[in-house]
Design a protein around this nucleic acid. Sequence first.
RNA 1: GUGGCCAUAGUUCAGUUGGUUAGAACGCCAGGUUGUGGCCCUGGAGGUCGUGGGUUCAAGUCCCACUGGCCACCCCA
Length: 420
Amino acid sequence: MAFRSIKGTKDVLPADTHRWQHIESVVRSVFQRFNYKEIRTPLFEQTALFSRSIGELTDIVGKEMYTFEDRSGDRITLRPEGTASVIRAFIQNNLAEQLPLTKVYYIGPMFRQERPQAGRLRQFHQFGAEAIGSPCAEVDAEVIAMAIEVYRTLGLRQYSLKINSVGCEKCRPLYKVKLQEELRKIAPQLSADSQRRIDENPMRVLDSKDEQDQKLTADMPLINQFLCEECSLHFSDVQRMLESFGITYTVNGRLVRGLDYYTKTAFELTSTELGSQDALAGGGRYDLLAKELGGKQTPGVGFAAGIERLLMVLEKTGYPFADSDHPQVFIAAADDPARAWTIAETMRLRGAGIAAETDLLRRSLKAQMREADRQRALHVLVVGERELVEGKAALKSMQDGTSRMIPLDAIALALTDTST
RNA sequence: GUGGCCAUAGUUCAGUUGGUUAGAACGCCAGGUUGUGGCCCUGGAGGUCGUGGGUUCAAGUCCCACUGGCCACCCCA
């Protein structure tokens, strides 16, 4: 039995890597414009880091993490998301002491053991950003705008932005009690999941996709109406700023995210082009997280976005991905005696900074030409004994088929002339 | 974790009510006279029909199990 990749993991094959690289380069350039610096944290951490930050009762911690004991008996978990690691690194390295506001981003794999389906993998990839150190609505708005700027840069229009405020440690507890009271009245009619959540996380009940639940909770009080003055002001500031950026959004009072650390702003970007896994990106503010993880109380905001889902949308909407790179020149050997020279010359050209390729299979000239064509080489230089004696050869343009004689000791020069 | 659908060449698929050497397209390889690609033509390689059982004179074709894939629930990126 041949080996297969682990269920829910995928190879990005050589024919597709340029698409990933393109997205990554767009992400990096957008983030760079917003002055966020890359941070690279380990792919695995102590299990407790995630259970404490994301929340013991969440699905992610409760049933989706890849957790194991290493050989020394430590509890290790493959990161299911990026924020916890970033905050851990922020605290551990005392970044707060260096700058009042730390703006970082990451790109990389995350791991969650869910049942794979369209747009959902066990190892998937996210890009995300965190701004740590400011309680101001400006940062919330900037982070949201930056996420949107990535999609905008890629020409994506088929998405919608939903925002909400989930309150803070002052106002949310009051709301929770009130909501639980109301939910208990109709508890028997709710779905099993929702019944369980009344105690664990009542706000998630309102976010249930069960139609019956939706109907029953239609008139439930929303967090909106219970926000304290600070949260309420903050939320309206965020909205005002988004509007000033020209960003359209809808307020969804039922929006709750699956990670418990959010306070105040929560947002989600969904695509109309995807199946049931339609979230492109999500994020929010987490003012209590740093303290929860043992650091000083430090406000923060961030978001994470799925690369596979972005790729799916771009492919579906026919995004014009550029071709992958092709050689500037293919050096073909017209006869066997010339082969020693063609391979050596190819190496020299590469050393001179030119993308050059040659035949490594000792094939016929016809086969070499086919190969050059398949590789979309810009030029082919056919060299045999005759050319070596004469010191010049025909440089053929594969686009228009024309060729011109060039001296064999100045190939690089000839190529830089023509390629401009 | 629960359900539904699917499983034939590298890829996408076709294989009639179970019946002799399992097909196509694309891709790959080689040719189409003397050292030059793309188009076209010719030829070729490539499949233990996911695996294991069973029914039958006979199974890619029917039944069962397993494995894998896809999709949905759930959850989220």
